[in-house]
Design a protein around this nucleic acid. Structure first.
Length: 492
RNA sequence: CGGGGUGUAGCACAGCCCGGUAGUGCGCUACGUUCGGGACGUAGAGGUCGGAGGUUCGAAUCCUCUCACCCCGACCA
């Protein structure tokens, strides 16, 4: 993979969109900046949701749902948060249309129906949720609150890109409230770990866990943790964030509780989220020129069976064999599709399922029926082999595990090969232009240096890795002392 | 908001410079031959050429206005 794709970096954008289209995942909507997620794309997102939701439940969280609309005054309460999102908010100002007296059949906004107070379409839900938590929390006995919501949010970006940045997107946002700082800090850390585990185990995408710099921090947070993935064109992608909010939102929304000594204290909070952007990450981390490659753990279809037949009779014979196999595979908990359409030829189907990234394909024709065999092909390596039909079910679990592992290993190898340590600004610039990828360099810790490098190179500090070993060095830009390396990259 | 571009069939486009009443490929429909890696043939269906106005005997084509979308910047925890 990697090689062919990175050699055409300039075409990567188009290549990405091609994969989205070929795999039938999504398309641009007629609505500006918005996306239609097609059934197949959505089925992959559902698999992600299911896996994540289980992990949230396993760590003690429950789901709830809060309103789409946030009154402006409520939105403003946490100043930094409001300021950070102000530039990209959609606002509802009216609640009624009326027929246009000057233009038959058309409608106009009824000027008489202006809202007393405009409603912000949530770009994130801290405001509405913390204003609700105020009502839910009186005592330390009410804590912690560990709530997640699956929702859509709207951020009016100037430029959008399918999955990676759309005006409206689907996500989950966890919002927790705690009695102590320590507990909230641990929660933020825990959820970052959950995200990293999801990315690596399910998406087969290695990620760096780190901390954002001041300038990249979530507005209103005390600390923003993130996972950063590396895409095949050498650009970084922020794949998830987990914020320690301190008492900022509790103070802004006056959320206090009485502790077990009878004293009033402000609540500590966290929030964390991942979005349909993960679909973009999945595509850019694994796809090849033939389309998408889905890790088995997220594949809506694990195995597709394509019959090869010339007439009804042959199909009947094949179907009899396939029925047995399908039963065996489903008994193992796998999702199996038998594509017996007579409207498309086998070659067409082969290509179609490859574009869609189905991990395993089984072809069975008259020859196989005679010999009691099938042809089995794996999507990740394109390897094909013929084996006795009775061997399929016993070996399939190991095969899927192997595919999952192989995809991960490739991505990890790619990241390792595209992670570079540099000790000078010249080197940093050169690596950025020649190769891209993650660049480990010393930084003096100032926002000025960070901004200057961003201005000059378009590279940002993706994160300060949590596991960065202490190492004395000099900032590549200013020459001032630094005690560890941070990760620079150009990013999506 | 700056710079550039495009609107013609479901999709991708040609035609516009030089005005004469719309075409190609894919897709779609029917029939036949095909079917172990994206089939082929034949016959069809499908378009007020983004919108409004103007010039002209005649406008997809020229002029004016307008709307929409795309790309590059700015923006994007």
């Amino acid at each position: 993979m990697g090689k062919e794709i990175t050699s055409r970096k300039e075409d990567y954008s188009q290549w990405y969109l091609d994969v989205v289209k070929k795999a039938d995942l999504a398309e641009n909507s007629d609505v500006r900046g918005c996306m239609v997620i097609k059934p197949y794309g959505y089925s992959i997102w559902e698999k992600m949701q299911q896996a994540l939701d289980k992990m949230f439940k396993d760590t003690g969280h429950v789901n709830a749902y809060f309103p789409l609309f946030v009154p402006k005054s409520m939105f403003e309460a946490e100043e930094k948060n409001a300021e950070g999102f102000a530039k990209e908010c959609a606002i509802v100002t009216h609640y009624r249309l009326k027929t246009d007296p000057n233009n038959k059949g058309k409608l106009i906004v009824d000027p008489q129906a202006e809202l007393e107070e405009p409603l912000v379409v949530r770009p994130t839900s801290e405001a509405i949720i913390w204003s609700t938590y105020k009502k839910w929390i009186q005592s330390y006995r009410d804590l912690p609150i560990l709530v997640n919501q699956w929702a859509n949010v709207v951020r009016w970006e100037m430029r959008t890109r399918l999955f990676l940045r759309t005006a409206e997107f689907l996500w989950q946002e966890g919002h927790t409230a705690h009695a102590t700082q320590q507990e909230a800090v641990s929660e933020a850390q825990q959820m970052l770990d959950v995200y990293a585990e999801f990315a690596e185990n399910f998406m087969a995408m290695p990620v760096l866990k780190g901390r954002k710099t001041d300038s990249e921090r979530f507005p209103g947070a005390v600390d923003t943790l993130c996972i950063e993935g590396l895409m095949q064109d050498g650009k970084a992608l922020q794949a998830g964030t987990s914020h320690f909010l301190g008492q900022n939102f509790a103070k802004a929304f006056d959320v206090q509780f009485t502790n077990n000594e009878g004293k009033l204290e402000s609540v500590w909070g966290t929030s964390w989220g991942v979005s349909t952007r993960l679909m973009g990450a999945l595509i850019m981390a694994h796809s090849d020129d033939d389309g998408l490659i889905i890790p088995p753990k997220l594949a809506p279809i694990h195995v597709v069976i394509v019959p090869i037949f010339r007439n009804e009779e042959e199909l009947t014979k094949i179907t009899a064999k396939v029925d047995v196999l399908v039963k065996e595979l489903r008994a193992l908990g796998l999702s199996v599709k038998f594509d017996n359409r007579d409207t498309h030829k086998p070659g067409f189907k082969f290509a179609e399922y490859e574009m869609r990234g189905v991990p395993v394909r089984i072809a069975i024709g008259p020859r196989d029926v005679e010999a009691g065999t099938v042809e089995l092909a794996r999507r990740d390596t394109k390897e094909k082999k013929t084996l006795p039909m009775t061997d399929v079910a016993p070996g399939i679990t190991a095969l899927l595990d192997d595919i999952q592992q192989n995809i991960y290993n490739r991505a990890l190898k790619f990241r390792q090969e595209n992670t570079t340590r540099v000790d000078s600004y010249e080197e940093l610039k050169r690596v950025l232009d020649d190769k891209g990828g993650f660049i480990l360099a010393h930084w003096d810790g100032t926002a000025e240096t960070e901004a200057a490098i961003k201005e000059e190179t378009k590279a940002t500090i993706r994160c300060i890795p949590l596991d960065a070993p202490a190492e004395d060095g000099k900032c590549v830009y200013s020459g001032k002392p630094s005690n560890k390396r941070v990760v620079f990259a150009r990013a999506y």
